[in-house]
């Protein structure tokens, strides 16, 4: 793997960053897992559960992810944040652009992108099935490419544009790829489907009208244990207009 520069680690290579962060880890208090959506966001999002079903609830409290201090207003939090933790001065404080929104997070150097997206941003549409770059269920699109998010460090995603299944639709209007999966009934248990749909997005971004075999090739990093690949391939072809 080639080392690359990235903005989030202050211009260090990933190896340097990991080394430095590792030295610091013992003495650094890691903040609350609650996310501060500081840039443009106005809410702190937590996922809660009712006794019968999962819902996403919205609470109006503003928590500093680093020191855990709570504020009544976003403005108060922002003022505190800028005063106490200027950007670049806090280890692990990065901005991730997910589905078009910037999120400021304090992350640990060994956290992979799947963990951060699922556990810190609550984007649980991507699934973990192998957690080692085999199965494709955790696929997200990073700068237009399909990526196994379990195999990418969150630090390496800094400065990129990350797309997840949650970014395709708010639930009422389907993205054309989702609509094609609906039209073709291309799913069974559904666990692998978000990964397939995000891979399809990357395929169609590169090849808008793929052939049967181009789709099969593009999806060859994915498994569907229900055995639904015939209809999945048909759905992706249909989404491409073919």
């Amino acid at each position: 793997m080639t080392e690359k520069k990235n903005n989030g680690s202050g211009g260090k290579t990933r190896r340097e960053f990991l080394r430095d962060a590792g030295l610091l880890a013992g003495g650094t208090a890691i903040g609350s897992s609650i996310l501060l959506a500081a840039c443009g966001g106005t809410e702190t999002i937590t996922n809660t559960i009712t006794r019968t079903q999962t819902t996403t609830a919205t609470e109006s409290k503003f928590v500093d992810p680093i020191d855990g201090m709570e504020f009544d207003t976003l403005a108060a939090l922002q003022a505190h944040f800028e005063a106490v933790h200027p950007m670049g001065a806090v280890e692990g404080l990065v901005t991730l652009n997910v589905n078009g929104k910037d999120h400021i997070l304090q992350i640990k150097p060994h956290w992979d992108l799947a963990f951060v997206l699922r556990e810190k941003l609550g984007l649980v549409g991507l699934k973990l099935s192998c957690d080692r770059g085999t199965c494709g269920t955790c696929t997200v699109v990073v700068d237009g490419k399909a990526i196994y998010s379990c195999m990418m460090l969150a630090m390496d995603a800094v400065g990129t544009k990350i797309e997840t299944i949650e970014g395709l639709s708010d639930g009422a209007i389907m993205h054309p790829i989702q609509q094609a999966f609906l039209d073709k009934n291309a799913f069974q248990c559904g666990f692998c489907i978000p990964g397939y749909i995000m891979a399809a997005k990357a395929i169609l971004g590169k090849t808008p009208n793929p052939t049967h075999n181009e789709v099969r090739e593009g999806l060859s990093g994915h498994f569907c244990s229900c055995g639904n690949s015939k209809r999945i391939v048909e759905a992706v072809k249909a989404a491409g207009g073919g």
Binding site: N47, T54, R118, V124, T164, S169, G171, L182, F187, I193
Partner: peptide, 21 residues
């Protein structure tokens, strides 16, 4: 009947609960 939940990634599996907490 749950097609939309599946293709939007909203069908909840047990590991999807209480993220981060």
């Amino acid at each position: 009947k749950q097609a939309v939940q599946v293709v939007t990634g909203k069908l909840d599996f047990s590991a999807d609960l209480h993220p981060g907490n």
